[in-house]
Design a binder for these strands. Structure first.
Length: 436
RNA sequence: GUGAGAGUAGCUCAGUUGGCAGAGCACCAGGUUGUGGCCCUGGUGGCCGUGGGUUCAAGUCCCAUCUCUCACCCCA
């Protein structure tokens, strides 16, 4: 195979997802869709490309995402457009532009699809990655914050993913956060000698980000920094207490992480992250929180909102360590020998496929032994054999690959015979992809 | 963006001080003239990631580049 010279490879950090793995993706997506809809969420689909300004305004100019991770291109007219690095901004945009709030300010929406960030690829981190997002607009109550976290834990439970931790924090609101910011940056000014260069810059632009810098020097500085939860105003404190109480009531364990700060500017009050220890450095499988000021900041009415994003790629990685990627095995394999038999077999395969029976057929003119080997490798439950002998006798042979039993079926009644055999076999045992 | 490791058959990997490109699995065929899994025999398959350089000679040494992996960073 001389192909390297001309072979074009995929872009760094991008990947192909092959059929075997897709079964798992579909299962995860379907689980989310069913669950979210039972909680009253409806699907929305928004574009992958948006104007760059949308993300600059929503995510924040001084975030890593906007400063260095976005795929941004100029159009012919010179307008900057961006491959979305996250979905919330687009959903808010749609909520406003389509005036969804006018019909009903309360909207519960979910979406799923690819996001793009130009980071250095790593385990669990890709430049095109997939998220499932859920957002609630128009509800300020802490109950909904807790319910979304509850819904997430249900989701992971349904996928049999264990060993997760809920990390929780409150980031305050425009009323109380400034006081905390002031206290924090004052403290960072005093004791900031050990800060890394990045954090010295952040100290002015976005002091909260210094809190979750993982460098030892910054950690030690931050160790006895004031906790934001001590600065919350009465409303924010009550809100936070309520969220915690609800989680306790629903039996969801959580850890309050005062240093948990979201990488996006728009968050207020509740912030949370769901982490695992099994994925190395990229330990967040879901993250989200409240963003009560974003809708208004993007030019809409003042409406509170909460949301989260689940990292699908990481979920798949986790699930792959538990369950093996599944093969989709055919119900029946048709082994046809000779020209005349293949003609019959072709018709049967079309008919059986139309009936919803997973049918595999090999049109290469090979020995029965070779065809049987292939049927076995594909994991076919049955093999239907037909050749000149069978055509002369007016029958085909149906072999149960598990029990090795063979029965003869009249050529005229092949479809009915195969169907009744398959039905009889599947009655006794569980069928299909139940091991997921 | 920074650092470290790796790229040889479809897959997992050997390859000595630079000297004819290897194994296991998989695949194909035969053993069994029409019956799978086990076994035996044989076979197909490689510009050694790509491009340059050093050398009589490069999978091996040097440079560049691409991709992967892990970490920093960041987050889903």
């Amino acid at each position: 195979m001389r192909r390297h010279r001309f072979m074009i490879q995929l872009i760094r950090g991008f990947k192909d997802i092959l059929p075997n793995e897709i079964e798992l993706w579909k299962h995860i997506e379907q689980t989310a869709i069913t669950l979210f809809e039972s909680f009253g969420f409806r699907q929305i689909r928004v574009p992958i490309l948006e104007k760059a300004a949308l993300f600059q305004r929503s995510i924040g100019e001084h975030t890593d995402i906007v400063e260095k991770e976005m795929y941004t291109f100029p159009t012919e007219k010179g307008e900057l457009i961006t491959l979305r690095p996250e979905a919330t901004a687009s959903i808010v945009r749609a909520y406003l532009q389509q005036r969804m709030y006018a019909k009903d300010p309360i909207q519960k929406l979910y979406t799923l699809g690819p996001m793009f960030r130009k980071e250095r690829p790593q385990k669990g981190r890709y430049r095109q990655f997939y998220q499932i997002n859920a957002e609630v607009f128009g509800i300020e109550s802490p109950y909904i914050d807790a319910q979304m976290i509850f819904m997430l834990t249900r989701f992971f439970r349904q996928l049999s993913i264990t060993g997760l931790e809920v990390h929780l924090n409150s980031l305050g609101c425009p009323l109380c956060r400034p006081a905390f910011k002031k206290a924090l940056s004052g403290m960072l000014m005093e004791k900031g000698d050990a800060l890394c260069s990045e954090c010295i810059r952040r100290r002015d632009t976005n002091p909260l980000r210094v809190l979750d810098c993982k460098r030892p020097g910054c950690q030690s500085v931050v160790e006895n920094a004031p906790a934001i939860t001590d600065y919350l105003c009465d409303d924010c404190a009550r809100h936070f207490d309520r969220v915690k109480a609800c989680l306790e009531r629903m039996g969801i364990p959580y850890v309050v992480s005062p240093r948990l700060v979201r990488g996006l500017d728009y968050y207020t009050r509740t912030a949370f992250e769901i982490q695992t220890r099994e994925l190395g450095a990229q330990n967040a499988v879901a993250g989200g929180g409240r963003y009560d000021t974003l809708v208004e900041a993007l030019g809409g009415p003042s409406q509170p909102a909460v949301g989260f994003a689940v990292g699908l790629d990481r979920l798949v990685d986790l699930a792959l360590t538990k369950t093996r990627a599944s093969e989709l095995t055919p119900d029946i394999f048709i082994a046809a020998m000779g020209e005349a038999a293949q003609e019959k077999a072709f018709e049967w395969s079309c008919e059986l496929g139309r009936e919803g029976i997973k049918t595999e057929i090999d049109f290469s003119d090979r020995s029965l032994k070779a065809l049987m080997k292939r049927a076995n490798r594909l994991g076919a439950g049955y093999v239907l054999m037909v050749g000149d002998q069978e055509l002369d006798r007016g029958t085909a042979v149906l072999r149960n690959m598990r029990t090795r039993e063979q029965t003869e079926i009249a050529l005229s009644g092949v479809l009915g015979g195969v169907k009744s055999q398959l039905r009889a076999a599947s009655d006794g045992r569980p069928h299909g992809d139940s091991q997921l």
